[in-house]
């Protein structure tokens, strides 16, 4: 259903060539701008909703951010810069608009291994039977990560930003990005190992 929608959008797109799209956008073509908006809107909405629970605020912020890039289109370098710029400005804007509504913790929380093990054994067992068991475990473990670690993971693996871009989007230094990623990997490894050990034991038992 989702895929159908994307195919529909892809067929709607007027500009199939990135540089043509880029030129048209720079020259003030609203259709080209819409195409750029459509390319990034769902990723931005998803990212924004993880940063703030106030979804109307997120929508307002996204609107402001796109108006801003329209005004500043002459100063933007390329399509990839737009994506980076959108994420960075959206995060700033949300932080400014409602500091308190942000679910982002200001401190780097210690890894909470207890939390990762909370799902019941029954639930794990039923999920283990499916083909995507490992994916489910990993998914739950990522959900349970402290906010900053999860944000770094999402920016690195889903949104495909470099560590340097992540640093600038999150407003932290380069080394903190690597630290956040490493803590996250450590937490994920713990959860994966633990779950598979439990599973092995259970399987051996039966």
């Amino acid at each position: 259903m989702l895929n159908d929608w994307y195919y529909f959008l892809a067929n709607l797109s007027t500009y199939h060539n990135e540089s043509v799209l880029w030129d048209a956008f720079r020259q003030g073509d609203i259709e080209a701008f819409e195409q750029i908006y459509r390319t990034h809107s769902s990723a931005l909405l998803g990212y924004g909703k993880r940063l703030s629970t106030d979804h109307d605020l997120v929508k307002d912020a996204i609107q402001d951010v796109f108006i801003e890039i329209w005004k500043r289109r002459e100063n933007l370098r390329d399509l990839h810069t737009i994506k980076f710029y959108l994420f960075r400005v959206l995060r700033n804007r949300l932080t400014n608009l409602q500091q308190k509504a942000l679910t982002v913790s200001t401190e780097e929380a210690p890894i909470d291994e207890e939390l990762l093990l909370t799902p019941s054994i029954e639930l794990i067992l039923t999920e283990e039977e499916t083909l995507t068991d490992q994916q489910h475990r990993l998914q739950r473990a990522i959900e349970a990560l402290p906010n900053r670690q999860r944000e770094a993971i999402m920016l690195a693996f889903f949104h495909n930003f470099s560590n340097d871009e992540i640093a600038r989007i999150m407003g932290i230094n380069h080394q903190s990005v690597i630290n956040n990623l490493n803590r996250a990997f450590a937490a994920l490894r713990v959860s994966l190992t633990d779950f598979s050990l439990i599973l092995c034991m259970l399987l051996n038992y039966f």
Binding site: A43, G46, K49, Q134, Q135, L138, Q139, I142, E143, I153, M154, A156, F157, F158
Partner: peptide, 11 residues
């Protein structure tokens, strides 16, 4: 793996 899982998480 992380790319697949984060894609699902992104909703």
């Amino acid at each position: 793996k992380l790319s697949e899982v984060t894609t699902r998480l992104a909703g």
